[in-house]
Design a protein around this nucleic acid. Structure first.
Lengths: 212, 212
DNA sequence: GTCTATACACCGATAGAC
DNA sequence: GTCTATCGGTGTATAGAC
Protein backbone atom coordinates (compact mmCIF):
# COMPACT_ATOMS: atom_id res chain seq x y z
CA UNK A 1 0.00 0.00 0.00
CA UNK A 2 2.63 2.46 1.07
CA UNK A 3 4.77 1.43 -1.87
CA UNK A 4 2.57 3.28 -4.32
CA UNK A 5 3.64 6.57 -2.82
CA UNK A 6 6.83 8.45 -2.78
CA UNK A 7 7.59 11.58 -0.84
CA UNK A 8 8.30 14.58 -3.04
CA UNK A 9 11.07 16.98 -2.25
CA UNK A 10 8.51 19.45 -0.91
CA UNK A 11 6.90 16.77 1.22
CA UNK A 12 3.79 16.38 -0.88
CA UNK A 13 2.83 12.81 -1.59
CA UNK A 14 2.82 12.14 -5.29
CA UNK A 15 1.75 9.10 -7.20
CA UNK A 16 4.66 7.20 -8.66
CA UNK A 17 4.08 6.99 -12.39
CA UNK A 18 5.21 4.18 -14.61
CA UNK A 19 7.29 4.74 -17.73
CA UNK A 20 9.77 7.53 -18.41
CA UNK A 21 9.13 10.58 -16.23
CA UNK A 22 9.31 13.32 -18.86
CA UNK A 23 11.80 15.94 -17.72
CA UNK A 24 10.73 19.52 -18.06
CA UNK A 25 13.41 22.11 -17.30
CA UNK A 26 10.77 24.78 -16.78
CA UNK A 27 8.83 22.90 -14.10
CA UNK A 28 12.10 21.76 -12.54
CA UNK A 29 13.21 25.36 -12.17
CA UNK A 30 9.83 26.26 -10.80
CA UNK A 31 9.98 23.49 -8.24
CA UNK A 32 13.45 24.59 -7.20
CA UNK A 33 12.21 28.12 -6.59
CA UNK A 34 9.33 26.80 -4.50
CA UNK A 35 11.82 24.86 -2.42
CA UNK A 36 14.00 27.97 -2.01
CA UNK A 37 11.02 29.85 -0.66
CA UNK A 38 10.15 27.06 1.76
CA UNK A 39 13.72 26.90 3.03
CA UNK A 40 13.66 30.65 3.61
CA UNK A 41 10.34 30.31 5.42
CA UNK A 42 11.75 27.59 7.73
CA UNK A 43 14.77 29.73 8.48
CA UNK A 44 12.56 32.69 9.31
CA UNK A 45 10.34 30.54 11.52
CA UNK A 46 13.29 29.20 13.50
CA UNK A 47 14.68 32.67 14.13
CA UNK A 48 11.55 34.75 14.66
CA UNK A 49 8.97 32.12 15.50
CA UNK A 50 6.49 30.26 13.34
CA UNK A 51 3.72 32.82 13.58
CA UNK A 52 6.10 35.74 13.04
CA UNK A 53 6.87 34.83 9.46
CA UNK A 54 6.23 37.77 7.14
CA UNK A 55 6.13 37.55 3.38
CA UNK A 56 8.50 40.49 3.10
CA UNK A 57 11.09 38.72 5.27
CA UNK A 58 10.81 35.48 3.31
CA UNK A 59 11.02 37.38 0.03
CA UNK A 60 14.12 39.23 1.23
CA UNK A 61 15.87 35.93 1.96
CA UNK A 62 15.32 34.67 -1.58
CA UNK A 63 16.02 38.05 -3.21
CA UNK A 64 12.46 38.82 -4.23
CA UNK A 65 9.77 41.33 -3.49
CA UNK A 66 6.92 40.12 -1.34
CA UNK A 67 4.20 40.07 -4.04
CA UNK A 68 6.42 37.89 -6.22
CA UNK A 69 5.88 35.01 -3.82
CA UNK A 70 2.34 34.85 -5.14
CA UNK A 71 3.73 33.51 -8.42
CA UNK A 72 4.68 30.38 -6.50
CA UNK A 73 2.19 30.16 -3.63
CA UNK A 74 -1.44 31.21 -3.64
CA UNK A 75 -1.24 32.74 -0.15
CA UNK A 76 0.77 32.83 3.05
CA UNK A 77 -1.30 29.92 4.35
CA UNK A 78 -0.33 27.95 1.24
CA UNK A 79 3.30 28.34 2.34
CA UNK A 80 2.40 27.07 5.80
CA UNK A 81 0.54 24.23 4.11
CA UNK A 82 3.55 23.17 2.07
CA UNK A 83 5.73 23.38 5.18
CA UNK A 84 3.22 21.20 7.04
CA UNK A 85 3.30 18.55 4.34
CA UNK A 86 7.06 18.73 4.12
CA UNK A 87 7.53 18.25 7.87
CA UNK A 88 5.19 15.27 8.08
CA UNK A 89 6.74 13.82 4.93
CA UNK A 90 10.18 13.96 6.51
CA UNK A 91 8.92 12.33 9.68
CA UNK A 92 7.20 9.61 7.67
CA UNK A 93 10.47 8.92 5.91
CA UNK A 94 12.42 8.63 9.15
CA UNK A 95 9.66 6.49 10.65
CA UNK A 96 9.85 4.10 7.72
CA UNK A 97 13.64 4.07 7.93
CA UNK A 98 13.68 3.42 11.67
CA UNK A 99 11.28 0.53 11.27
CA UNK A 100 13.88 -2.04 10.25
CA UNK A 101 15.03 -4.28 11.71
CA UNK A 102 11.76 -4.87 13.51
CA UNK A 103 12.15 -4.87 17.32
CA UNK A 104 11.77 -8.28 18.92
CA UNK A 105 9.39 -7.33 21.69
CA UNK A 106 6.38 -5.03 21.72
CA UNK A 107 7.89 -3.11 24.60
CA UNK A 108 11.09 -2.29 22.75
CA UNK A 109 9.09 -1.35 19.65
CA UNK A 110 6.95 1.06 21.65
CA UNK A 111 10.07 2.57 23.17
CA UNK A 112 11.58 3.09 19.75
CA UNK A 113 8.46 4.70 18.26
CA UNK A 114 8.04 6.95 21.27
CA UNK A 115 11.66 8.08 21.25
CA UNK A 116 11.55 8.71 17.52
CA UNK A 117 8.54 11.00 17.78
CA UNK A 118 9.72 12.71 20.94
CA UNK A 119 13.17 13.55 19.59
CA UNK A 120 11.79 14.73 16.26
CA UNK A 121 9.29 17.03 17.94
CA UNK A 122 11.67 18.46 20.52
CA UNK A 123 14.41 19.12 17.96
CA UNK A 124 12.49 21.96 16.26
CA UNK A 125 9.89 23.96 18.16
CA UNK A 126 8.56 25.82 15.12
CA UNK A 127 8.16 22.58 13.22
CA UNK A 128 6.39 20.91 16.14
CA UNK A 129 4.01 23.85 16.50
CA UNK A 130 3.10 23.59 12.83
CA UNK A 131 2.77 19.79 12.84
CA UNK A 132 1.02 19.19 16.13
CA UNK A 133 -0.46 22.38 17.47
CA UNK A 134 -2.95 24.84 16.08
CA UNK A 135 -0.58 27.76 16.42
CA UNK A 136 -1.31 29.56 13.16
CA UNK A 137 -4.66 31.38 13.27
CA UNK A 138 -6.97 30.10 10.57
CA UNK A 139 -4.53 27.59 9.15
CA UNK A 140 -6.06 24.24 8.23
CA UNK A 141 -3.87 21.77 6.35
CA UNK A 142 -5.06 20.71 2.91
CA UNK A 143 -5.96 17.10 2.26
CA UNK A 144 -2.78 16.67 0.25
CA UNK A 145 -0.51 18.01 2.97
CA UNK A 146 -2.38 16.02 5.59
CA UNK A 147 -1.79 12.76 3.72
CA UNK A 148 1.67 11.99 5.17
CA UNK A 149 0.36 12.70 8.67
CA UNK A 150 -2.41 10.18 8.07
CA UNK A 151 0.16 7.75 6.72
CA UNK A 152 2.24 8.10 9.90
CA UNK A 153 -0.65 7.36 12.22
CA UNK A 154 -1.71 4.50 9.94
CA UNK A 155 1.80 3.12 10.05
CA UNK A 156 1.84 3.32 13.84
CA UNK A 157 -1.48 1.52 14.17
CA UNK A 158 -0.32 -1.14 11.75
CA UNK A 159 2.94 -1.75 13.59
CA UNK A 160 1.23 -1.79 16.98
CA UNK A 161 -1.31 -4.26 15.63
CA UNK A 162 1.55 -6.53 14.55
CA UNK A 163 2.42 -6.80 18.24
CA UNK A 164 -1.18 -7.55 19.14
CA UNK A 165 -2.10 -4.00 20.15
CA UNK A 166 -5.12 -3.48 17.95
CA UNK A 167 -7.73 -1.54 19.86
CA UNK A 168 -8.26 2.09 18.80
CA UNK A 169 -8.12 3.30 22.37
CA UNK A 170 -4.73 1.68 22.88
CA UNK A 171 -3.15 3.68 20.08
CA UNK A 172 -4.99 6.80 21.26
CA UNK A 173 -3.59 6.45 24.77
CA UNK A 174 -0.09 5.90 23.41
CA UNK A 175 -0.12 9.06 21.30
CA UNK A 176 -1.64 11.05 24.17
CA UNK A 177 1.11 10.00 26.58
CA UNK A 178 3.98 10.70 24.20
CA UNK A 179 2.42 13.96 22.99
CA UNK A 180 1.82 15.06 26.55
CA UNK A 181 5.47 14.57 27.46
CA UNK A 182 6.55 16.47 24.34
CA UNK A 183 4.34 19.42 25.14
CA UNK A 184 5.49 19.60 28.74
CA UNK A 185 9.12 19.35 27.70
CA UNK A 186 8.81 22.22 25.23
CA UNK A 187 6.62 24.37 27.44
CA UNK A 188 8.27 23.94 30.84
CA UNK A 189 11.86 22.89 30.20
CA UNK A 190 12.88 23.89 26.67
CA UNK A 191 16.37 22.64 25.88
CA UNK A 192 16.42 20.46 28.98
CA UNK A 193 15.54 16.82 29.63
CA UNK A 194 13.18 16.96 32.59
CA UNK A 195 10.40 15.16 30.68
CA UNK A 196 12.63 13.34 28.21
CA UNK A 197 13.93 11.34 31.18
CA UNK A 198 10.37 10.19 31.93
CA UNK A 199 9.71 8.78 28.46
CA UNK A 200 10.95 5.22 29.01
CA UNK A 201 9.21 5.00 32.36
CA UNK A 202 5.97 6.20 30.77
CA UNK A 203 6.22 3.61 28.02
CA UNK A 204 6.88 0.84 30.52
CA UNK A 205 3.88 2.01 32.49
CA UNK A 206 1.81 1.84 29.31
CA UNK A 207 3.16 -1.60 28.38
CA UNK A 208 2.41 -2.88 31.87
CA UNK A 209 -1.13 -1.62 31.54
CA UNK A 210 -1.53 -3.63 28.33
CA UNK A 211 -0.15 -6.73 30.04
CA UNK A 212 2.83 -6.92 27.69
CA UNK B 1 1.02 29.63 53.06
CA UNK B 2 -1.90 29.75 50.68
CA UNK B 3 -3.93 31.60 53.28
CA UNK B 4 -2.05 34.82 52.76
CA UNK B 5 -3.52 35.15 49.28
CA UNK B 6 -6.94 35.88 47.99
CA UNK B 7 -8.06 35.85 44.41
CA UNK B 8 -9.15 39.23 43.07
CA UNK B 9 -12.12 39.58 40.80
CA UNK B 10 -9.83 39.87 37.81
CA UNK B 11 -7.91 36.79 38.83
CA UNK B 12 -4.84 38.60 40.02
CA UNK B 13 -3.53 37.45 43.34
CA UNK B 14 -3.50 40.23 45.84
CA UNK B 15 -2.15 40.40 49.31
CA UNK B 16 -4.87 40.45 51.92
CA UNK B 17 -4.44 43.65 53.86
CA UNK B 18 -5.34 44.14 57.46
CA UNK B 19 -7.54 46.99 58.67
CA UNK B 20 -10.40 48.75 56.87
CA UNK B 21 -10.10 48.57 53.10
CA UNK B 22 -10.70 52.20 52.15
CA UNK B 23 -13.39 52.38 49.49
CA UNK B 24 -12.70 54.64 46.55
CA UNK B 25 -15.56 55.11 44.09
CA UNK B 26 -13.16 56.23 41.39
CA UNK B 27 -10.97 53.15 41.49
CA UNK B 28 -14.04 50.96 41.86
CA UNK B 29 -15.48 52.40 38.65
CA UNK B 30 -12.13 51.96 36.96
CA UNK B 31 -11.94 48.35 38.02
CA UNK B 32 -15.47 47.74 36.74
CA UNK B 33 -14.50 49.13 33.34
CA UNK B 34 -11.44 46.89 33.24
CA UNK B 35 -13.67 43.92 33.94
CA UNK B 36 -16.07 44.98 31.17
CA UNK B 37 -13.20 45.03 28.72
CA UNK B 38 -12.01 41.59 29.82
CA UNK B 39 -15.50 40.14 29.46
CA UNK B 40 -15.71 41.58 25.96
CA UNK B 41 -12.31 40.11 25.14
CA UNK B 42 -13.38 36.65 26.33
CA UNK B 43 -16.55 36.85 24.25
CA UNK B 44 -14.54 37.85 21.21
CA UNK B 45 -12.05 35.04 21.79
CA UNK B 46 -14.79 32.41 22.05
CA UNK B 47 -16.43 33.56 18.81
CA UNK B 48 -13.45 34.43 16.62
CA UNK B 49 -10.64 32.54 18.31
CA UNK B 50 -8.11 33.63 20.92
CA UNK B 51 -5.53 34.95 18.47
CA UNK B 52 -8.18 36.72 16.36
CA UNK B 53 -9.03 39.24 19.04
CA UNK B 54 -8.75 42.79 17.69
CA UNK B 55 -8.83 45.91 19.82
CA UNK B 56 -11.43 47.42 17.53
CA UNK B 57 -13.77 44.46 18.08
CA UNK B 58 -13.30 44.53 21.85
CA UNK B 59 -13.81 48.29 21.92
CA UNK B 60 -17.00 47.96 19.87
CA UNK B 61 -18.44 45.52 22.40
CA UNK B 62 -17.93 47.94 25.26
CA UNK B 63 -18.99 51.01 23.28
CA UNK B 64 -15.58 52.59 22.97
CA UNK B 65 -13.05 53.46 20.31
CA UNK B 66 -10.03 51.24 20.12
CA UNK B 67 -7.45 53.75 21.40
CA UNK B 68 -9.52 54.32 24.52
CA UNK B 69 -8.67 50.82 25.70
CA UNK B 70 -5.15 52.09 26.28
CA UNK B 71 -6.48 54.12 29.20
CA UNK B 72 -7.13 50.79 30.96
CA UNK B 73 -4.53 48.40 29.53
CA UNK B 74 -1.01 49.25 28.44
CA UNK B 75 -1.19 47.02 25.37
CA UNK B 76 -3.06 44.18 23.75
CA UNK B 77 -0.72 41.74 25.49
CA UNK B 78 -1.66 43.32 28.81
CA UNK B 79 -5.25 42.29 28.09
CA UNK B 80 -4.12 38.74 27.36
CA UNK B 81 -2.11 38.88 30.56
CA UNK B 82 -5.12 39.85 32.68
CA UNK B 83 -7.17 37.11 30.98
CA UNK B 84 -4.42 34.60 31.77
CA UNK B 85 -4.40 35.55 35.43
CA UNK B 86 -8.17 35.53 35.58
CA UNK B 87 -8.45 32.05 34.07
CA UNK B 88 -5.86 30.50 36.37
CA UNK B 89 -7.43 32.34 39.31
CA UNK B 90 -10.79 30.79 38.54
CA UNK B 91 -9.29 27.34 38.23
CA UNK B 92 -7.43 27.78 41.50
CA UNK B 93 -10.71 28.68 43.17
CA UNK B 94 -12.49 25.62 41.83
CA UNK B 95 -9.51 23.44 42.72
CA UNK B 96 -9.63 24.69 46.31
CA UNK B 97 -13.40 24.21 46.41
CA UNK B 98 -13.24 20.68 45.00
CA UNK B 99 -10.64 19.70 47.58
CA UNK B 100 -13.06 19.01 50.39
CA UNK B 101 -13.95 16.51 51.59
CA UNK B 102 -10.56 14.93 50.99
CA UNK B 103 -10.80 11.66 49.03
CA UNK B 104 -10.08 8.56 51.06
CA UNK B 105 -7.67 6.88 48.68
CA UNK B 106 -4.85 8.28 46.56
CA UNK B 107 -6.40 6.70 43.50
CA UNK B 108 -9.73 8.45 43.93
CA UNK B 109 -7.95 11.74 44.65
CA UNK B 110 -5.93 11.46 41.44
CA UNK B 111 -9.10 10.69 39.52
CA UNK B 112 -10.78 13.79 40.93
CA UNK B 113 -7.86 16.12 40.19
CA UNK B 114 -7.51 14.74 36.68
CA UNK B 115 -11.20 15.08 35.91
CA UNK B 116 -11.30 18.59 37.32
CA UNK B 117 -8.47 19.77 35.11
CA UNK B 118 -9.65 17.87 32.05
CA UNK B 119 -13.21 19.20 32.19
CA UNK B 120 -12.07 22.75 32.86
CA UNK B 121 -9.69 22.70 29.91
CA UNK B 122 -12.07 21.06 27.45
CA UNK B 123 -14.95 23.38 28.37
CA UNK B 124 -13.33 26.43 26.74
CA UNK B 125 -10.80 26.04 23.94
CA UNK B 126 -9.75 29.68 23.86
CA UNK B 127 -9.18 29.65 27.61
CA UNK B 128 -7.16 26.46 27.43
CA UNK B 129 -5.00 27.85 24.63
CA UNK B 130 -4.23 30.90 26.71
CA UNK B 131 -3.62 28.97 29.93
CA UNK B 132 -1.69 25.99 28.66
CA UNK B 133 -0.39 26.61 25.18
CA UNK B 134 1.85 29.26 23.70
CA UNK B 135 -0.73 30.26 21.13
CA UNK B 136 -0.28 34.02 21.23
CA UNK B 137 2.92 35.11 19.49
CA UNK B 138 5.19 36.97 21.88
CA UNK B 139 2.89 36.70 24.87
CA UNK B 140 4.65 35.88 28.13
CA UNK B 141 2.57 36.05 31.31
CA UNK B 142 3.70 38.51 33.94
CA UNK B 143 4.85 37.29 37.32
CA UNK B 144 1.64 38.54 38.88
CA UNK B 145 -0.61 36.73 36.43
CA UNK B 146 1.52 33.61 36.68
CA UNK B 147 1.13 33.47 40.45
CA UNK B 148 -2.21 31.58 40.53
CA UNK B 149 -0.81 29.06 38.03
CA UNK B 150 2.13 28.49 40.36
CA UNK B 151 -0.30 28.17 43.25
CA UNK B 152 -2.27 25.48 41.41
CA UNK B 153 0.76 23.35 40.67
CA UNK B 154 1.94 23.89 44.24
CA UNK B 155 -1.44 22.81 45.53
CA UNK B 156 -1.35 19.68 43.38
CA UNK B 157 2.12 18.73 44.60
CA UNK B 158 1.08 19.32 48.19
CA UNK B 159 -2.04 17.17 47.88
CA UNK B 160 -0.20 14.42 46.07
CA UNK B 161 2.48 14.47 48.76
CA UNK B 162 -0.23 14.01 51.39
CA UNK B 163 -0.94 10.65 49.72
CA UNK B 164 2.74 9.75 49.71
CA UNK B 165 3.42 10.81 46.12
CA UNK B 166 6.28 13.19 46.70
CA UNK B 167 8.84 12.79 43.91
CA UNK B 168 9.01 15.61 41.38
CA UNK B 169 8.93 13.21 38.46
CA UNK B 170 5.70 11.65 39.73
CA UNK B 171 3.84 14.95 39.58
CA UNK B 172 5.48 15.70 36.22
CA UNK B 173 4.26 12.45 34.74
CA UNK B 174 0.77 13.02 36.08
CA UNK B 175 0.44 16.46 34.49
CA UNK B 176 1.92 15.19 31.22
CA UNK B 177 -0.61 12.37 30.98
CA UNK B 178 -3.64 14.52 31.77
CA UNK B 179 -2.41 17.37 29.58
CA UNK B 180 -1.74 14.96 26.74
CA UNK B 181 -5.28 13.64 26.83
CA UNK B 182 -6.66 17.19 26.92
CA UNK B 183 -4.66 18.23 23.88
CA UNK B 184 -5.65 15.17 21.88
CA UNK B 185 -9.30 15.63 22.82
CA UNK B 186 -9.33 19.24 21.67
CA UNK B 187 -7.23 18.66 18.56
CA UNK B 188 -8.68 15.43 17.22
CA UNK B 189 -12.20 15.12 18.60
CA UNK B 190 -13.46 18.57 19.66
CA UNK B 191 -16.85 18.32 21.31
CA UNK B 192 -16.59 14.54 21.54
CA UNK B 193 -15.41 12.16 24.25
CA UNK B 194 -12.92 9.92 22.47
CA UNK B 195 -10.11 10.82 24.87
CA UNK B 196 -12.29 11.79 27.82
CA UNK B 197 -13.27 8.12 28.01
CA UNK B 198 -9.61 7.18 28.45
CA UNK B 199 -9.00 9.44 31.42
CA UNK B 200 -9.92 7.04 34.23
CA UNK B 201 -8.01 4.21 32.58
CA UNK B 202 -4.96 6.44 32.24
CA UNK B 203 -5.12 7.42 35.90
CA UNK B 204 -5.46 3.79 36.98
CA UNK B 205 -2.47 2.95 34.81
CA UNK B 206 -0.56 5.75 36.52
CA UNK B 207 -1.64 4.66 40.00
CA UNK B 208 -0.65 1.06 39.23
CA UNK B 209 2.77 2.30 38.17
CA UNK B 210 3.18 4.01 41.54
CA UNK B 211 2.13 0.84 43.33
CA UNK B 212 -0.93 2.49 44.87
C1' DG C 1 5.64 32.98 -16.72
C1' DT C 2 8.15 36.07 -13.32
C1' DC C 3 8.73 39.85 -11.18
C1' DT C 4 7.92 44.86 -9.84
C1' DA C 5 5.32 48.81 -8.48
C1' DT C 6 1.42 50.37 -6.48
C1' DA C 7 -2.50 50.22 -3.78
C1' DC C 8 -5.91 48.65 -0.33
C1' DA C 9 -7.86 47.25 4.09
C1' DC C 10 -6.70 46.03 8.42
C1' DC C 11 -3.80 45.75 12.50
C1' DG C 12 -1.58 47.65 17.16
C1' DA C 13 -0.06 51.77 18.83
C1' DT C 14 0.76 56.93 19.61
C1' DA C 15 -0.18 62.13 19.79
C1' DG C 16 -2.88 65.63 21.01
C1' DA C 17 -7.44 68.13 21.32
C1' DC C 18 -11.44 68.34 24.33
C1' DG D 1 -10.98 59.39 30.05
C1' DT D 2 -12.39 59.43 25.58
C1' DC D 3 -12.15 61.11 21.22
C1' DT D 4 -10.07 61.93 16.20
C1' DA D 5 -6.22 61.61 13.32
C1' DT D 6 -2.43 59.26 12.03
C1' DC D 7 1.70 56.22 11.93
C1' DG D 8 4.29 52.07 10.46
C1' DG D 9 3.55 47.36 9.36
C1' DT D 10 0.88 43.42 7.73
C1' DG D 11 -1.36 40.12 4.05
C1' DT D 12 -3.07 40.50 -0.28
C1' DA D 13 -4.84 42.01 -4.99
C1' DT D 14 -3.81 43.73 -9.49
C1' DA D 15 -1.80 46.19 -13.55
C1' DG D 16 1.88 46.10 -16.34
C1' DA D 17 7.05 45.71 -17.53
C1' DC D 18 10.26 42.26 -19.33
Amino acid sequence: MQDHWTIGRDGSTVLTMLGTPKRDRQTERREATRQEILTAAWATARVQGLAQITLREVADRVGMRAPSLYSHFASKNAIYDAMFGQAWGEFLESALAADTPAPRTARSALRRYARLFFDFAVADLARHQLMNQRTIPGFVPSEESYAPAVAVIGLLRERMASYGISRDQDADLFTAIVGGLVNQQLANDPGGDRYARLLDRAIDMYADNLGL
